[in-house]
């Protein structure tokens, strides 16, 4: 049985697409057959971050509407084996996303893939509800700020009440907290919530903390998910995320501000 995992948040710009790209890539790198689907109909940027925008011919909506076969719309990733991307349409109306249509696409994908990753649009409207409806697990992507935490809480409520699992009284959607764009220096200054604050409010298990990092934007601009760059903090954080998701027990990293540098250690701080 394929696992359907939604990457969601309520709030926009928190790092859902960045996370979907690296998480899906990471699962595939570990040998799991994975497909990542862009549900952000109208915006379409997963393909940019995955670096396959030039190869988009058909999209999710074409498949749902029967205008293209699934295999025509799926794009095989160039860098990673076992990985495919199902892009969103930039032009069409979100209402074209129907439960029946998505169900049919998922049923077909489930024959070939172990993990189906759904990159949700922001908000709690139709597109976001469709992206989470079939989920078995949810990556609650949250930034360390009050508004993002509040929106994540709201999404958790919706997962509990409006997902297929909730409606059919099945085991609840398994929830994971991904705290991203975490800036320990700003957290220590009190500008942002810390890990404990966020966990206290959301009360779901922490999967990983991804630090705020310039490498993320650089990687996106090159169309390479940041998990490919194992020299970077963000790349390592996503690597840890994937490993923990697959059952490894690793200590959390990137939570504390960088220690004093070499010169400060040798000569002492003169501040």
């Amino acid at each position: 049985m394929a696992r359907i995992i939604v990457v969601t948040s309520g709030k926009g710009g928190v790092g859902k697409t960045t996370t979907s790209a690296s998480f899906a890539t990471g699962l595939a790198m570990k040998g799991h057959r994975t497909v990542v689907i862009d549900f952000d109909v109208g915006l379409r940027n997963l393909d940019l971050i995955m670096g396959c925008e030039r190869r988009v011919v058909y999209d999710l909506i074409n498949v749902i509407n029967g205008e293209a076969a699934l295999h025509q719309a799926l794009i095989k990733d160039k860098h990673t084996e076992n990985l495919s991307v199902l892009p969103a349409s930039q032009t069409r109306d979100k209402e074209a996303l129907t439960r029946e249509g998505i169900q049919a696409v998922f049923d077909e994908l489930a024959k070939d893939y172990e993990y189906i990753i759904c990159d949700s649009p922001a908000g709690i409207e139709h597109g976001a509800l469709m992206a989470l409806y079939f989920a078995d697990e949810a990556i609650i992507t949250t930034n360390p700020e009050v508004s993002s935490v509040r929106d994540s809480d709201r999404i958790l409520g919706i997962l509990q009440s409006k997902s297929r699992r909730a409606e059919q009284n099945l085991d609840p959607v398994k929830e994971h907290l991904l705290l991203t764009r975490y800036n320990p220096t700003r957290v220590e200054m009190g500008d942002m919530l810390n890990v404990e604050d966020v966990q206290e409010i959301l009360a779901i298990p922490l999967l990983a903390v991804v630090p705020e990092s310039k490498d993320v934007l650089k990687a996106s601009n090159h169309g390479v998910p940041v998990i490919h760059q194992q020299a970077t903090d963000a790349g390592q954080a996503y690597n840890d995320m994937v490993a923990r998701f697959l059952g490894a027990e690793l200590p959390h990293r990137f939570i504390n501000a960088p220690k004093k540098g070499f010169f400060q250690k040798v000569f002492g701080s003169r501040a």
Partner: peptide, 8 residues
């Protein structure tokens, strides 16, 4: 038994 979330 579960948390009651914002909006519920």
């Amino acid at each position: 038994e579960q948390p009651v979330r914002s909006g519920q």
